[in-house]
Design a protein around this nucleic acid. Structure first.
Lengths: 251, 251
DNA sequence: CGTTGACTTGAGTCTATTCAAATCCTGTGG
DNA sequence: CCACAGGATTTGAATAGACTCAAGTCAACG
């Protein structure tokens, strides 16, 4: 029993840490305490393994989720097997909440990309909170607006940039601050998933990354990327962007 | 003076008709009367000619607009001359309002596509109304959500459908009701603009439309389109869609 | 050490683009 | 009412970009 107790204590710690993180999310941070308490009481900590489907497009929405750690992809699947990856999310982001505004039906599917810890929250609480409380409605409005801006950018990029440029912009978004001149980092998830997120095949990704390596001074070794001259990469990638570097990450 | 008076009376009639139409828009229809009165008092009737720019991307947002009649395109322009058309709007739609949620800066440009009558409304009134009034905030939330759904669909289509299929879906959306078996109509605006809206060149549009004509039973003569068998066109176009026909028009 | 999955490379193909030229349409001035 | 200029649309030819399928390489893991 001691062992179980210990595990349970550990789990409780994890859960309360997760709720602390949840409280920092912009949708929750301005929320009246008594409403946040509802979410906090109902939140369920979940550990999910790679490949698990959390919901599918057209499912009725019962829950929405907060990512504590790990990676989640949002996607749409077509009748004949195609898949479009609309977004890939990690710690600090919520997903599935938009269904509340879409007639209670998910417009995207969500799947676990690698071992992920989530908080699962009842959609009804959020739905009621939006209806009842002005502050929550404004928070939701800000959240949906951010998504709209992000999608606007994605459409622009799909329409106007070639594959190398899209990869270049993706790499630039990995550079945390906007005023760095050089950067080194690891790719956040599999190349094949990055390819899907950018709307290309993985073979095309591989070749386009090679082209980017030839035409700029970036280095790539496995998942390690070096960008010795950020502005050089920006001028290669963003000539077909409407925005100056940096293409802010709009999450 | 009689003539002037007559014109002025005519103009007043047009303006009040426009305001009646405005009142039917979902953002305004549930609004408290006293708030709607503010919009109604401030609304300015505008006649705009083809080519006029209403605002550009990155402009500070002072106004938003309601389309009384005509056509408006929303677009982004890149550094080196490319343009992505994000949407094309007509009677009954508003645009430019999203800037209120984007830091007061327009994320898209707006241009008149053909002679258009607009109501111009001060952004500050809407901004204040959203802040002050819960119902207005909920209306705005519904409006932004609709845009988000629409963009999600656009991204899916850009990622997964070829040019002929995208045109096919566009034609299907022209069929007003979802249960028709056949339809005849005129294209709503220039083919070159449809091409841009669907993310392709006009030459490509022309060829892809020919292909669609060869592979389905649709007829095209100038801007007149006949669809003798809607379900046939749907099965050609929507095999790469995640949704069953009809791809609802989400405006 | 072999297996598995991720990634890369090669070859061929297809789709959409570019540039150029022809054709169609429409509004306008005569 | 007609001829015509200018824009819209179509067509042709060549090209470029991305995709598919197949094969090979690499690295992690049991």
């Amino acid at each position: 029993m001691a062992e179980l107790l210990h595990i349970s204590e550990h789990r409780d710690t994890k859960r309360s840490d997760a709720i602390t993180a949840l409280a920092r999310h912009s949708l929750f941070s301005n929320m009246p305490e008594e409403i946040f308490a509802e979410f906090s009481a109902a939140a369920q900590l979940m550990e999910s393994e790679k490949g698990q489907m959390l919901f599918l497009q057209d499912d009725p929405s019962e829950w929405f989720y907060f990512v504590v750690s790990g990676w989640i992809k949002l996607f749409r699947e077509t009748v004949d097997g195609g898949e479009a990856v609309l977004d890939v999310l990690t710690s600090g982001h919520i997903f599935g909440e938009a269904a509340i505004l879409d007639g209670g039906i998910h417009t995207l599917g969500a799947a676990v990309v690698e071992k992920t810890t989530l908080l699962r929250l009842p959609a009804t609480i959020l739905k009621n909170a939006i209806t009842k409380n002005h502050t929550v409605a404004l928070g939701m409005l800000a959240s949906v607006s951010r998504q709209r801006r992000q999608q606007t950018q994605d459409i622009e990029k799909l329409s106007l940039q070639n594959t190398s440029q899209r990869i270049g912009c993706f790499l630039l978004r990995m550079c945390k601050t906007s005023d760095v001149t050089s950067a080194e980092f690891k790719l956040p998830y599999d190349k094949s998933l990055i390819a899907a997120r950018l709307g290309m095949q993985c073979e095309t990704f591989s070749r386009a990354l090679n082209k980017l390596r030839k035409e700029t001074s970036i280095t790539v070794k496995g998942s390690s990327v070096g960008i010795p001259d950020v502005s050089e990469l920006a001028s290669f990638s963003c000539s077909n962007c409407s925005q100056e570097f940096p293409c802010h990450d709009l999450h």
